[in-house]
Structure formats: structure tokens, C-alpha cells
Simulated assay, not measured.
Amino acid sequence: MRRSEQDAALEELYARVPAVNCVGDCWTECSSIDMSPRERQRITEAGIRIPDRLTMIAAQVRNDGAKCPALNAQRRCSVYDRRPMICRIWGASKMLVCVWGCKPIEGRYLTHAESMELLHLSRSIGGADPFELPGYEYLDQNPDHARLVARGRYVENLVRGSRSSAQH
């Protein structure tokens, strides 16, 4: 599939995500994410390089504060129009409810199944294995882990936990 076809298909998919009444406080949650190769490429074309998810998690563990490189000085997403699916469903999905209270404008959250379908489709359209969702392995099995896993905290907490238990 050509880039223009991928982009058109991704835009169609993005249109399925309910609009959210974002208040802009979610920058605190912008950290380690995964996306399809085409979604990453679109962001790179805008002049922002987002490291792969494992690199971001390692940086978070090392300095306890690595944030998404797309955040500008005002703590806003500088690639908002190009953001990947995982960022788009934040606050619009029951599995990624915004901790700051932002909700879908129309009042209907995406279900867990709808959210997973959108993630799988965006990966497939964007040139990745649609069923290989690095870091999201528990989402299909246990929606209660969704926010922890999707934000990278699950792995980060595992690493920190093993460090602190080794120190005690």
C-alpha cells in the first residue's frame, strides 16, 4: 500500500474515534507509546522523532520523567493532527479513561472491543503486525491493566520493583 493510501485509510480510521473535550492536562500521561511504522513516519516527517517504546521506557526508568518528545514548551502535543491511534483513543475509550476528567463530547466511550479493533487496524494499515501490540499484551485479557500497560507504567513498575526488592 502506498503512503497516500495508508494515510487516507488511517484518517478514515481516526474519524471513528469520538472527539474528546480535552483540557490539556494529559501531558503528564504522554510517555512510552507504540505506533505503526507509518504513524511514526508521519510524525518524523513533521520534524519530531519519537523513540521506540522500549527506549522510552528505559529513559523513564533511568531519569523518572521522560516525556514524549512531541510535547512543546507549553506542554501541548506539537503533532496533534498526526498523533497515533493510541493517543487518539486516550479519553475516548473505556480502557483509557482520562485521569483529568476529559470525556467524549457525544458522551459515548469506545468499548474495550472497539478500542482494540482500532489499535489492531491502525497497526495493520500502518505496516505493522496488527496482532503484535508491544506493551499491550494484557489489554485483550484484562481491561483493568489497560491504563498501566498503555502508559508504560506496568513495565516501569516491574523494573523499579525488582530494583527495590534487590536493595532490601
Rank of each mutant, 00 (worst) to 15 (best):
S124G: 13
Y14K: 03
R123L: 12
C98R: 03
D34M: 06
F131N: 14
K67G: 12
D129M: 03
S32H: 06
L71Y: 08
C102R: 01
I57W: 03
G126H: 06
M56S: 12
L13S: 05
D81E: 14
R153V: 06
P51A: 09
I86C: 05
D144M: 11
W100L: 01
A46T: 05
R40P: 01
D52N: 13
E11M: 11
L54T: 12
N63Y: 10
R40H: 11
A59Y: 02
R3Q: 09
H120G: 00
P37G: 05
E5Q: 14
G126L: 04
S162I: 05
W27A: 11
D34K: 00
R40T: 10
R49E: 11
M85H: 06
G24R: 05
A113W: 00
W100A: 11
H120A: 13
L148M: 13
D129K: 06
W100Y: 10
S165V: 09
L139I: 14
L139Q: 04
G161M: 06
C22S: 06
E39P: 05
N72F: 04
R147L: 12
S36G: 09
K67H: 14
L139N: 07
E117C: 00
V99W: 01
A73V: 11
W90Y: 15
M56I: 10
P51H: 10
I50C: 03
M56Q: 13
Y154L: 14
R82Q: 15
G152P: 02
V99C: 02
A59V: 01
D52F: 05
K94I: 09
R76V: 01
W90H: 15
I33K: 01
V99A: 13
Y136K: 01
R3P: 04
D64Q: 14
S165E: 02
A58W: 05
Y154H: 14
